[in-house]
Design a protein around this nucleic acid. Structure first.
Lengths: 160, 160
DNA sequence: CTTGACCTTCCCACGATGGGAAACCCCATC
DNA sequence: GATGGGGTTTCCCATCGTGGGAAGGTCAAG
């Protein structure tokens, strides 16, 4: 089985196969005399494992851990669960972040009449206009808020 | 006002200031005789606009559009709104994707007893184990599902 | 033997950001 | 006037995971 077939069978691109090998996620593949990489059904199995893990958004680093645990008969499921839960926590954080952005932006878009006139609450907000009710502090990190940086400068622009 | 002060006043790192100039998001800054970049209060204003847009997750490309509209008195708010809504749509898609991952992984983690024993539904699933109820098709793209790629190969591994 | 499909390695690109080196500039203090 | 510390300049490299493409070798079918 050469790289193209392994790729087709696993759903991982040949490019990624070489990359995974390079970074040590996969062991160095055997080679034919001509230098072609050769894969076994077991290799394809591992590749499928990796692909599914990537589908779940796991980083290469964590996948390395999981593959290690997977191949370790002495593993404790607690270790696996911990890795999974760390990733869930990261996903949760990201989802929260994106949702805050989405909500803010949607709110602004809703307030925009969206016609030929130039007035626009979206631009007004980005410009640093007064936090229209509820905005500010949803998305921005609330550090150092309160004092103005330099005299004469646009007051809404404070270092954060 | 040199780059450090503009950076502090706007909350955009000096590194990013140079980068934004390089890629054309900002006009080339004026220079002192010694070659130091010089920024005006108006420049800082633009920088704040950009920073807030970045806080909302907008791409540089879209921020370019928005800055252009912002500075165009003839703009129509519809154009601004469209840009915002495109971004909301992208955020929604990303949130959906991450949420699907999160839910799947959380489900698997919940099913894992997480003790010293090696048995683990997480690994079992990644291994390509039967789609435990409801899994599969939440996260993976459902293309080409149905037929097995090659004879003798791990059946759960089909090219997608 | 030719042709086309495959494989190899190597380099570059993305997007947005940070790190760091080498060189230069500015200002204050001695 | 010299020295030192902190700012600035440009340039290169790294991230993370992926794709694109070039230049060259290989393999199998016609």
């Amino acid at each position: 089985m050469n790289i193209g077939q392994a790729s087709a069978a696993s759903g991982v691109s040949a490019k990624m196969l070489r990359y995974y090998e390079e970074i040590g996620l996969l062991p160095k593949a055997a080679r034919t005399e001509a230098g072609y990489r050769v894969y076994s059904a077991k290799d394809v199995n591992t590749l499928c494992f990796i692909r599914r893990a990537r589908d779940l958004g796991l980083s290469i680093e964590r996948i390395k851990l999981l593959v290690g645990l997977w191949q370790d008969r002495e593993r404790s499921s607690a270790d696996v669960k911990r890795v999974a839960q760390e990733h869930v926590a990261e996903l949760d954080a990201k989802i929260l972040e994106l949702t805050a952005m989405r909500d803010t932006l949607q709110e602004l878009a809703d307030a925009c009449h969206g016609d030929h006139r130039p007035d626009c609450p979206i631009l007004h907000d980005l410009e640093g206009g007064r936090p229209s009710p509820s905005r500010r502090s949803i998305v921005t990190n609330d550090v150092g808020r309160g004092e103005v940086t330099a005299a004469g400068l646009p007051a809404q622009c404070h270092a954060n």
